[in-house]
Structures are given as C-alpha cells and as structure tokens.
Simulated scan of single mutants.
Amino acid sequence: MRERIIIDFETTGLSPRLGDRATEVAAVVIDETGIVDRFQSLINAGRPIPPFIQQLTGISNAMIRQAPKAETVMRQLFAFIAGRPLVAHNASFDHGFLGAELDRIGESYPGGLLCSMKVARRIYPEAPNHRLATLIQHASIAVTGQYHRALADAEMTALLWLHMEQKLRHDFALPEVSLELMQRIQTAPCKGLGKCVDSFKRRACAA
C-alpha cells in the first residue's frame, strides 16, 4: 500500500533563518486504510519560547526543559520518515524547519513536501479560507485534539488529505489518486482543477 507521511512542527517563531527552533514535531503515516502509525516528541533545542507562543500552543519552557535534545529527536524522526513522501499544511513553513533541524545533524530530506493547503485551495475554492481549522470544519471532519499541537495538527491534516483524495476519486471517477496527481493539482490554476485532472487522466491513458 502507498504510504505518505503528514508532518507538523511547533516552533519558537516563524523563521529558522532568524534563529527560531522547533519545540515539537509529529509525523503521521497514512495509507489507503487511514492512519497506520504515529511519531511525536517535544524538542529541547535550547531556545526559550516567547510568551505568546506558549499561550498559542500550550507548550511551556518548563515542558521543553524536560524534553529530549533536538539532535536525539531529529535522528529518531529521520529514521521514522525513511525517505517516504511528506505532506504538510502550509508546507513551506514545515519544510524550512525540517531542513534546518536535519542540517544540524548532518542529514537532509531528499525532496520537497506536498502542501495540503495548496491542494485544498483547488479542491475547496468555496471555503471561507484555507487554514486547517476552517477546512476541518468545512469538510465536516472530526477534531482530534488541540490545534497548534503537532500531533493533533498532523492527524487532522492526514484526515483532510484522505478526505481530499476521496473527493477527487468520487468527483472525477478516479480508481486512485497518486502523489503525482496531487503534485500537479497544487501547482494548477486555482480555478483549473477539472482541466488539471482531465489532462492527467489523458496522459495516464496514453502511457
């Protein structure tokens, strides 16, 4: 079965280039049957968490002081993802922190991350916005935990991704939804979903 990994980071701020570090990471494995495995850990990267982010996430400096060191967690995460395709909501954010934290342990992830937010903009153009919480409500998906905690956000992104795959199969009579199709959808014009899928189906039939 095709496995994909949904990844989510909580952090001290918005940019690793400005010295921000990861405070928590979660990775959720999905296949055609749903969620099949999980990884989650708080991260002690030696950088204090600003008060407003403590309030947003519920992750305190006291919690981080007792957490495993960043090097340990990232080596565990690197082994867990094992080169499998990665998905994240607002993937450029998570990709930046994944790359920065892996670079600190001398590793790198060979490839980019698929972005569930970009895909959702094409599949749910009628949604009020494309934040994760809005999309979960829009698609009538059950809330699994506290937003802005890595495992809950990864799980809900996983459920959203599976829901979007199911919607594509239903709406376009597709036997399956490949990662290649999702890659094409996330870069298609926002009002060009139908043309994108039809073009992909024609190419697949001609191959």
Rank of each mutant, 00 (worst) to 15 (best):
T144S: 15
P85Y: 04
A70W: 05
E176I: 07
G111C: 14
Q166H: 09
R121H: 08
T33F: 06
I81M: 15
K191S: 06
A120Y: 03
T144E: 10
T12L: 01
M63D: 15
D20F: 02
A45E: 05
I6V: 15
R4V: 04
P48C: 07
I49S: 09
R203W: 11
P175I: 00
E126V: 02
G46R: 12
L168M: 05
E24T: 10
D153H: 03
G34W: 04
L162V: 09
Q66K: 12
D20S: 06
I53P: 03
S116W: 00
F93M: 13
V25D: 01
A158Y: 01
R38N: 04
W161K: 00
V143F: 09
Q166V: 01
K69D: 14
T144F: 06
H163N: 14
S41Y: 02
F172R: 04
A207K: 12
N44E: 12
A26M: 08
F93E: 10
R202K: 13
R4T: 09
Y109L: 09
L151R: 08
L113S: 03
A91F: 05
L174Q: 07
I123T: 01
F80A: 15
L181H: 01
I5T: 12
L160D: 06
I6N: 04
A22P: 00
T11S: 08
F93R: 11
G99I: 04
G145Y: 06
T72N: 13
Q40W: 11
A22C: 04
P16N: 04
T23R: 06
A204N: 07
L77A: 09
H170I: 08
S199G: 11
Q40C: 13
Q137W: 00
H163P: 00
L179G: 15
A173R: 13
I81A: 13
L168H: 09
T72L: 14
Y124R: 02
R84K: 15
S92H: 14
T33G: 05
A133K: 13
H163V: 06
S199F: 01
T57G: 08
G194M: 03
C205Q: 15
H95W: 11
L77F: 09
P50K: 06
V87T: 10
P85E: 12
A91L: 05
L102G: 04
S92P: 11
R169W: 12
F78Q: 11
F80P: 09
P110E: 08
R84V: 05
I35K: 02
R65I: 01
I43E: 07
L181A: 01
K191E: 13
I105L: 10
R184G: 01
Y147L: 07
K69Q: 15
